[in-house]
């Protein structure tokens, strides 16, 4: 089952490994309890669970926005808790993130927003122009290169956020409720983009509470319920409640 789902039992050298991770914000209650799983490279997973189950918290730990309160997280074979301030950005560059609220920079054009991950990695401008142009065409925004994010529709902003997340060819792509505020047509379109990234070799984790979407695509699930994680194999229906 583990091989089929891409979720391995805790073993050395895993691509993404959570080891008995607990997490709370400040002095607040624990939002994640004893979370443990491994993701193999090149796999696709949905992260499911009701609102408040801890999906966003788990993703934030995965893209190094927060540190676990207890337990350990290993990404690409490296212990993230002991990463120095110089090392953390190097690991983060291997992770593409589609934030729930997009977090596009409003003062930058669509082109510059997508170019940002390449610029922080000191990629040369000719290469940036080429990659970003291709990416914007890929997400259907070739005609909106100079547009500011606020002039774009919700679906277009979402696609722009995806383009920014994948422009640096990340090894791990995480998306937090990317289909939450779009219609079915745009949701399908976005899923196709994630599948494309997956086919290029990225390990993809998409958080969603859209049971139909999970059912339609049938990828394995990391299911959170009240901060506790269960790994569900491909084709499993999203548990209710």
């Amino acid at each position: 089952m583990a091989a089929a789902t891409g979720i391995a039992a805790a073993s050395g050298g895993a691509f993404v490994r959570f080891e008995n991770v607990g997490f709370n914000y400040g002095d607040g209650p624990m939002v994640l309890h004893d979370v443990a799983f491994d993701l193999e490279p090149g796999t696709f997973h949905f992260l499911t669970g009701p609102s408040g189950a801890g999906k966003t918290s788990l993703l934030r730990l995965m893209y190094l926005a927060d540190r676990p309160t207890s337990g350990a997280i290993r990404l690409f074979g490296r212990d993230t808790v002991s990463l120095s301030r110089l090392e953390a950005p190097v690991v983060r560059r291997r992770i593409g993130v589609v934030f729930q609220d997009f977090r596009l920079l409003p003062h930058l054009s669509a082109f510059d927003n997508v170019a940002l991950p390449l610029r922080v990695a000191s990629v040369g401008e000719p290469e940036i122009r080429q990659h970003v142009g291709e990416l914007l065409s890929w997400v259907g925004l070739a005609d909106a290169m100079d547009a500011r994010p606020k002039t774009l529709s919700g679906g277009e902003q979402q696609r722009l956020a995806i383009a920014r997340a994948v422009v640096a060819r990340p090894d791990l792509l995480v998306a937090d409720e990317p289909t939450g505020n779009v219609d079915d047509h745009n949701a399908m379109r976005m899923m196709r983009l994630f599948q494309n990234a997956h086919h290029y070799g990225a390990t993809v984790v998409v958080a969603t509470h859209n049971a139909q979407l999970v059912q339609r695509y049938g990828y394995p699930q990391l299911h959170l319920q009240a901060g506790r994680l269960k790994v569900l194999p491909a084709g499993t229906a999203v548990p209710q409640g």
Partner: peptide, 16 residues
């Protein structure tokens, strides 16, 4: 602060 967090999360060094 929020923009800085985004820059950090996409891999910007403090120096950048």
């Amino acid at each position: 602060r929020e923009t800085i967090e985004v820059l950090h999360l996409i891999g910007a060094h403090d120096d950048y």
